[in-house]
Every structure is written in C-alpha cells, then in structure tokens.
Amino acid sequence: MAPIIQINSLTKAYGSNLVLKGIDLEVQPSQIIGYIGPNGAGKSTTIKILTGLLTEYGGSVKVNGLEVSENPLEIKSMIGYVPENAVMYDTLSPAEYFRFLGSLYGLDRKAIEQKGAELLRIFGLYENRNNRMTSFSKGMKQKVLLISGMIHNPDLIFLDEPLSGLDANSVILLKEILQRLSQAGKTLFYSSHIMEVVEKICDRIVLLKEGTVIAHGTFQELQNQQHSGTLEQLFNQLTGNNEHLALADEFVEIIKK
C-alpha cells in the first residue's frame, strides 16, 4: 500500500535558522501518528508544510502522491486541519461558519447545515448554533474548530494540540472519535504535548528534537529500545530533559521563602 504521506530529506530555514534538518518519514493510511517534541523542535513547521501553508522548503513532501509545493490547493482540498492557534471568523455563528466552509469545498448548502447541526449536537453546542462566536468560551470555539476540520469528510486530518481548552468529558469524547475515525480508514497526524493521550491513541510515535527525528516506532517499540516506563519518561530521557524533578523542588523552595 502506498504511503499517504511521504517525506524525504525535508529542510526548512527561517533566515539563518535551520528549523528542520532533513526529516524522513512515511505514513501509511488508517494510522494515527503522534508527532511530538519540545517547543521549537519543528512540529508545527512540519504540519504547515504538509498542509500547504508553507511551500518553500528543501527536499520532497508528498501527500497522496502529490508534491505539496507544486499542488498546494489540491492538497488543501483533500485534507482536514485543526491548527493550534486558529483565527476564526467569530463574528459569525457556527451555522454561518460551516456554510462558509461548505462553499469553499463545493458542498451542498442544506447538507452542510444539517451535518453541522448534528455535529454540534454531539459536542453539546446545538442550542448555540445560531449564536455569534464572540460570546463563546475557548472550549466552545475549539469544538467548532474541530468540527470545521472534519466536516468535509477528509481522508487525512492534521491536528495540532486539538485538546486545547476542552473540558474533561470533551477530551474523552474526542479521543474516542479519533480512534473511530482511524478504524473508518482515516489517517490522523496528531501533534500534542499531552503524552498520556499520545501514548494511548497513537499507532506510531515520531519524536522530534531540534529539527531531527530522534525516535520513531510504536510505543511498545520505543519502550523496549529505551527500557522506559511511560511515554513521558521516554520523552524526557530522549530529549535530555531530566532536570524537572530538581527544578520542581527548587521552585517550591523559592515559593516557600
């Protein structure tokens, strides 16, 4: 089976700062890929390249066999994207926002209205479907954003910190939704700092540090390689972040002065 994502020798620089230093990665269909790493490792930059938001890069990046830099609009039409920090048209209501998105994807207006209303109901926002989103909490906006990234039924979905602002019940629901999407044949490229969720739902995990892939495999494979317990422990070990216990003690001691 051909990979849905194929990355070869990917580099990206901002001025003299080389953010990505030769990424090689293949993603097979129907997998949930956990893409993790410290702040500044290059996770969001990779996702922006894969989604066609950044088209100037070195190497080759293909989605469904198409080079992203040469086919950015076609790539955008076939994927879903839930960014970490989205600028929404929050003067619209969710119903209006979904109609706007539907027009971009060439979807039937009545069909998108019905689909949007049903999805809002699942997230507990049906009664708010015609309210201006300027009055929404961060969690409510995040639910609308999640729906907007999937409402057009894409086969490949990119999620960058999708749990931001969600309450505990919504987190549980979203985790189940993502696993069901994978079972339905969707591919999910999932970036998050919440190691517990990545450990539980991802089929494969890619660990990035300073623009380089330093580990790649199933959680069990990574665990066996590093003789580590949880993904959080493995993450700290591989990224060299072993000072957190001492720093936590130091923080508390300073507070107590």
Rank of each mutant, 00 (worst) to 15 (best):
I49W: 03
I194D: 06
T11E: 14
H216R: 08
A248W: 11
G116L: 10
Y57W: 09
L25H: 00
N224Q: 15
R129A: 10
S44F: 00
I147W: 03
L159Q: 07
G52Q: 09
K143M: 05
L120R: 08
V87A: 12
N236E: 14
I205K: 04
V144T: 04
I33A: 04
Q226P: 01
L231W: 08
N131T: 05
V27S: 02
M140H: 11
Q237Y: 15
K62S: 02
E56G: 10
S60Y: 02
L10H: 04
N85Q: 11
V27Y: 01
G185N: 10
N130I: 01
N8V: 11
C202K: 03
N153Y: 13
V61K: 01
E67H: 06
E250H: 13
Y14E: 07
L20H: 01
D108A: 06
G211Y: 02
E84Q: 13
V171F: 06
V61A: 08
H216T: 09
F98R: 01
T230Y: 04
G42A: 02
S135P: 00
G165P: 07
L159R: 07
L247F: 10
I151V: 13
P94G: 06
M133S: 06
L125Q: 09
R132Q: 12
I112G: 05
S16Q: 13
I214K: 07
K141N: 13
I255V: 13
R132F: 04
K186Y: 11
N224R: 15
V82A: 12
E210A: 14
L166S: 03
H244D: 13
P154D: 08
L25D: 00
I49D: 00
M140R: 03
L231C: 08
Q142V: 07
M1K: 12
T218Q: 00
T187F: 09
N242G: 15
L50C: 10
Q225R: 14
S69A: 15
G149V: 04
M78A: 15
V171S: 05
S44N: 05
Q183V: 12
Y97T: 03
L181M: 15
L207H: 08
